[in-house]
Design a protein around this nucleic acid. Sequence first.
DNA 1: ATGAAAGCGCTAACAG
DNA 2: CTGTTAGCGCTTTCAT
Lengths: 327, 327
Amino acid sequence: MKKSNITDLAKHLNLAPSTISRALAGHKDISEITKTRVKEAADFFNYVPNLHARYFRKKNSNLIALILPDVNNFFIPELIRGINDVFNKTDYSIITFFSKDNFLIEKEIINYCISWMVEGVLLSVSDETKDLKHLDILVQSNIPVVLLDKVFPSSDHSLVHIDDSKTAFNATNFLISKGCKNILGIFGKPDVQMVQDRMAGFKNALYQSNLEFSNEQNILTNPNLENFEYKLTSLLESKQYDGCFIMSDELAFLAYPILVDKALFPNKIHLITISDGQVIGALRPKIPYIYHSGFNIGTRSAEVLLEHLENKEMKASDEVLETVLVR
Amino acid sequence: MKKSNITDLAKHLNLAPSTISRALAGHKDISEITKTRVKEAADFFNYVPNLHARYFRKKNSNLIALILPDVNNFFIPELIRGINDVFNKTDYSIITFFSKDNFLIEKEIINYCISWMVEGVLLSVSDETKDLKHLDILVQSNIPVVLLDKVFPSSDHSLVHIDDSKTAFNATNFLISKGCKNILGIFGKPDVQMVQDRMAGFKNALYQSNLEFSNEQNILTNPNLENFEYKLTSLLESKQYDGCFIMSDELAFLAYPILVDKALFPNKIHLITISDGQVIGALRPKIPYIYHSGFNIGTRSAEVLLEHLENKEMKASDEVLETVLVR
DNA sequence: ATGAAAGCGCTAACAG
DNA sequence: CTGTTAGCGCTTTCAT
């Protein structure tokens, strides 16, 4: 079945293509009667606009690019839900890309965004990303970018994130307030900015309470799935920890069963994690956590991007969302 | 900074636009020397193709539509990961839509797909969808559709799913094999096809083992977040269940803390669920589950769609993935 | 091996 | 209120 286009409708109704276009767009100086006729014909002939033609001509795209390192089962789904909640109320569609935490892929995706004429970019940078130079091309093309969650200081791009250092600091102090003296911190890849920030907050809390600290004894970093159990088990057997700060949901879900199986949690060791709270709340016994909402990060970053789209002159903002202890 | 296009490059190099186009596309009857010159110039002038112009002209889009009811923290992220794993190796981009389990929205999205000239559709139907008539327009436009996970029998569209009835049957039999005599089944909305299928499998297993059954005593359906705890608690207090089949991860994560808090699990009641295994594996004590992999459903459906794209004449297939008990 | 020319479907001046 | 016209950037046929 051949698809009908504006020209077809124009011929059927003895009108000019431009009139059809304007009628369908609800342009105000087309008579109501014509609008009705055109819309009925469009319905009858199953007319659907060709968006490539439209956006090609109009030099826009109604597309927002969402660039994420990957999908997980915790924070990212909530983030996606928040972003969609905001953009579903608009005409924008979302085109999603995954960098697989690979900087070169991230860079390619950025170019792809230009090719798609996306109107805005929501970016959570890859673990490998060390600066934001690869975003210059977006700035030059006047495409607003909002960095979310994993961010770098920037005067060119708006940021929506939490205070990672402070959040980790508060989490660690929760353990200290419980009387913990030997606290283990479990972190991700140590060369990632966010990990360094959270680690700094963790160390700072220990330092301020005059607690002993050594990298070997108090920090477990960059555990990959294969040797995580081994490394954590070794550490737990080497020393009697009474507290454990876990940087994220992923790591918490790796550590939790080990700590329970070794009968350490909940009786011998206090836990705390930074979590988006979606699934961790079902664990029994409960793990206290600092609530870091993917949904809120998502909605706020989407809203900030919308503001940039509505006002191209708006300058970059830096929004730091609050986190709160849940126990 | 003005973006350069093929015409600009043509002028700079004293070549025709068509030559530039062919050189960039690696067309074989352009000399190597010209190709090199063109590519260097493209690099130098930061040329990026205008995909709307290209796809408008070529009447395709390199877009795949992924239509999902919603995001959750269990099955859907794995599904997305699987789909992206497959399409990342191709030139296709994925444009994601969420129907919010609303049939009318799903229908609108389908039309939107036509407007975007998407080349294929991956669809997990909404809870409200009762038939597939709204997909006729895709068939007429010769756009292949793969239905995933939540499917309806169809000769027009390929299906990738599990045998819901059989899976629930096997799960229930696992409980029976543990000696359970009073088994509670927890299900989603009873008007949804998949729920009915899983319920049929559940009932059938009870029936074949001559176990007592009543809708009021053995089935909890359509629990929404507000009154789930109340309804489940009432049921658990009305009767001494020794087994509980839970239809999905979402429901398992709602029921689990209640069953643990009431000291029923793991000592007084056996559990089983159908799960994609991603986060449920961290629960202690463990819940046995029938592994229903979102990742596999995702990769298989993406592969099937790719086959349809490569061979437009291919007829619809029905792929039923196996499920396996994990304990 | 390269060029000339047409046209995809749509919208936005401009004209009346 | 409606029509005429041009052209967005690209690819492809046809010609050389």
